[in-house]
């Protein structure tokens, strides 16, 4: 029994899984309409954008020495605006009047996706360059990018949100493969891929080593700066993918989209057992953390609880999750 517990506790995802089960169980008992397939699918879909961003942010946090990306939400905003403006003809873009009906021009959509992700990766590259080459603290570098990218989104869109995207793009946000909504499928697929990269490739090993001890990594001949830049580029890319999902789901591109999402994504990463000190963490936990965040939002809406109660509860739950994680670490040190 004790060894079984120890084995469970050796997984860093254990606390978040435990929390999800507890909250789900409580909700299942006390909240009517909670345990329906449709509601559970809802919770998962709502977590997809933050979940995908959290994957990228987890890698940044793992890279250590205060690694963090505060600009992910803004990168989401600017890349989704770039996507929408590539698709929507300029004369229609200025027309805020109607829900736009746009043709499914696949070449245009492909171009839009490439631009969108390109912008995300470019912003990420600038973050990485500021951190690795200029030597700015990640907090400062990405704070600057957060302001700059949001300003850019407002500037190129003239502050105008737009409704209506081509149906084939909206499919990505709203449809399902069998029972699994496309955003959720995408989130799971990306999480699994990045998990394999992190745990099974030489790149993943160098990332963990660089995050765990930058000096040692230099002595081992690893490309420390290249690794640092790469995680910010990946984080920017995933923010852009999050932007595609968010826009497709809400059938809209909004220059203010994703405000505050970086904090949710950081919370999700921490909830999932990633240490802010760097050098350890996992993307599966981060995705579970994102699911947990939309899970606790759900009964608040279902039970019609005033919003004022929600934020303190969320704060408390994050603290509980981190305490659980620390307790887990202490338990598994035993041997």
């Amino acid at each position: 029994m004790a060894t079984a517990l120890k084995r469970i506790l050796s997984f860093k995802e254990a606390p978040i899984v435990f929390l999800i089960l507890v909250v789900a169980l409580l909700c299942g008992v006390f909240v009517p309409n909670f345990l329906t397939a449709a509601n559970l699918v809802n919770i998962l879909s709502q977590s997809a954008t933050v979940g995908i961003m959290a994957i990228g942010i987890t890698l940044v946090i793992i890279s250590g020495s205060g690694g963090i990306d505060l600009s992910a939400g803004s990168i989401l905003g600017v890349s989704s605006i770039v996507m929408a403006m590539t698709i929507i003809p300029p004369e229609l873009y200025r027309d805020t009047a109607a829900m736009l009906v746009l043709p499914n021009d696949y070449w245009v959509i492909f171009k839009a996706l490439v631009f969108c992700m390109g912008v995300g990766m470019f912003c990420g590259f600038l973050n990485g360059a500021m951190v690795a080459w200029v030597g700015l603290p990640p907090f400062i570098a990405t704070l600057a990018m957060m302001t700059a990218a949001r300003g850019l989104a407002a500037y190129i869109s003239a502050g105008i949100p737009t409704y209506g995207l081509p149906t084939s793009l909206v499919w990505v946000g709203q449809n399902s493969l069998w029972f699994v909504p496309v955003p959720v499928a995408l989130m799971i697929a990306l999480a699994v891929i990045v998990h394999i990269i992190l745990t099974r490739t030489t790149y993943g090993m160098s990332l963990l080593a660089v995050g765990g001890n930058r000096e040692t990594s230099r002595f081992c001949g690893m490309n420390v700066k290249g690794t640092l830049i790469s995680v910010y580029v990946i984080c920017g890319l995933f923010a852009a993918v999050g932007g595609v999902i968010l826009s497709a789901r809400s059938n809209q591109a909004h220059p203010d989209a994703g405000i505050g999402y970086e904090l949710s994504a950081i919370s999700a990463a921490v909830l999932g057992g990633t240490s802010m000190m760097g050098g350890s963490g996992g993307v599966l936990g981060a995705v579970l953390g994102a699911v947990f965040l939309s899970l606790i939002q759900n009964p608040i809406n279902l039970l019609n609880i005033p919003v004022a109660y929600m934020k303190p509860i969320m704060g408390a739950l994050i603290v509980i999750a981190v305490l659980l994680d620390q307790w887990r670490k202490k338990q598994s040190i035993g041997d």
Binding site: V31, P32, N33, F34, T36, A38, N39, N42, Q46, P161, L246, R249, S250, Q252, H254, D256, A257, S294, Q297, N298, I300, N301, L302, L303, N304, V307
Partner: peptide
């Protein structure tokens, strides 16, 4: 039967609406 904040934004109104429709 339900009254929840959408924070003046589309995305959050959508999520609140989805959840309220479940209940």
């Amino acid at each position: 039967v339900g009254s929840q904040s959408g924070y003046w934004t589309n995305e959050r109104a959508m999520a609140a609406m989805e959840n309220m429709l479940q209940a």
